[in-house]
Each structure stands twice: as structure tokens, then as C-alpha cells.
Write a protein that binds this DNA or RNA. Structure first.
Length: 179
DNA sequence: ACGCAGATTTTCT
DNA sequence: GAAAATCTGCGTT
């Protein structure tokens, strides 16, 4: 994905995501069909950003999926930094490369994402998610684990991590193979 | 390398 | 008023 927020181009390859699926997912913000100001974009058309604030200091980016009216989204949890590492470091501080975008709050800070970008389209504009550019997508192995920081529905593993990547928010040791 | 607690504020009960 | 889709720093092993 690519961010040109603030006139600075930075990009990275998505290596870790989590799914939050509908009003019957106990971990979903819209569990129990909660239509509130915060979850408004979750119910919107697919392909837009759902950005929320949590733990008093962190922003998290989701891509809204499924159909309009059905609250579902994919949380972007980690990126392999590709372009604009100096810009990321300026925003994140002088941390090791592996910690620049490893975690939903971290990657939002590295990309300059705040609540201001809630509801923007992700196909065009300053925040874009594009198909992997020739990086051998389709050949990669993806593993599946329980979602992080989620106590509800631990038996419903909806976290997806590129196998053996060093860029995830935590190591993916021995895990079941997805898909 | 690992575990724990503190930070900090939005959102909803 | 409590909990939260987290991160960091500091303590101990």
C-alpha cells in the first residue's frame, strides 16, 4: 500500500491482516448491530477506509469489505517497509526497520494516518491499496492464527500472516496453513 | 528475551 | 465510569 499523506510518498507490502466480520462477530466494533458515529463507515460501501482511535493514543486502519449495510472490514496489522523509510523514521523515531510498521498503531504513525482519513477511498487518493507489484504474490504461503488483543472468539482464527516474514507484529512460529 | 504496568482518550453503558 | 482490534519503557531472568 502507498501513502502520499503530507506530500511524502511512503509505501510497504501488507504482510499481516485481521478480519472483522459482521454483527455476529463478537470482536467486531459493530457486534450486535451497533450503528454509532464511530462505526458509521463500517456500514458503508466497500473499498473505503475505516480508521478508529484506541487505547488513548493509537490509530488503526481498516479496509471496509463486503456489501454496504453489512459491517465488515480487514484490519491492516503490519507492512514490510518499501519506500520512504527516512520519512517513516522521522514520524516513528529512530527504531529498527522491523519496528517501523509492525503493528496497526505503528504503521498508521509511519504512514501519517489519523482519524482525518476515516472514510476515504482506498483505490485512489493519498491512501491506496494496490495489487502486489510483481513480488510473487500467489506463491506466498499464508498462515492463520487467532486475532491479537481479542478475547472474544479466540476459537475463530481470523488473523492472516505471510509465512516466515520478519515484518509481522509478532513472530509466526508454528501455525496452521491458511487457504 | 520476556513480562508487566503505565500512558491517555474516545466511545458507549 | 469502565473498557478498549496498542505500544513503550523498565524491570527481572
Amino acid at each position: 500500500m502507498i501513502s502520499t499523506i503530507g506530500g511524502q510518498r511512503v509505501s510497504g507490502r501488507i504482510v499481516e491482516t485481521e478480519a472483522y466480520v459482521g454483527p455476529h462477530d463478537p470482536a467486531c466494533h459493530a457486534f450486535g448491530d451497533r450503528r454509532t458515529e464511530r462505526t458509521r463507515c463500517l456500514y458503508g460501501p466497500p473499498g473505503i477506509a475505516y480508521v478508529y482511535f484506541t487505547y488513548g493514543m493509537h490509530w488503526c486502519l481498516n479496509a471496509v469489505t463486503c456489501r454496504e449495510g453489512y459491517p465488515a472490514a480487514v484490519l491492516i496489522r503490519a507492512l514490510e517497509p518499501l519506500d520512504g523509510l527516512p520519512v517513516m523514521r522521522r514520524r516513528r523515531g529512530d527504531v529498527p526497520d522491523t519496528e517501523l510498521c509492525a503493528g496497526p498503531g505503528r504503521l498508521c504513525e509511519a504512514l501519517g494516518i489519523t482519524g482525518k482519513w476515516n472514510g476515504v477511498p482506498l483505490q485512489r487518493g493519498p491512501l491506496r491499496i494496490v495489487r502486489s507489484g510483481g513480488g510473487g504474490a500467489g506463491k506466498i504461503r499464508v498462515v492463520r492464527t487467532p486475532r491479537i488483543g481479542v478475547t472474544a472468539a479466540r476459537d475463530w482464527p481470523l488473523r492472516y500472516v505471510v509465512a516466515q516474514t520478519r515484518w509481522a507484529s509478532r513472530p509466526s512460529r508454528r501455525l496452521s496453513v491458511a487457504r
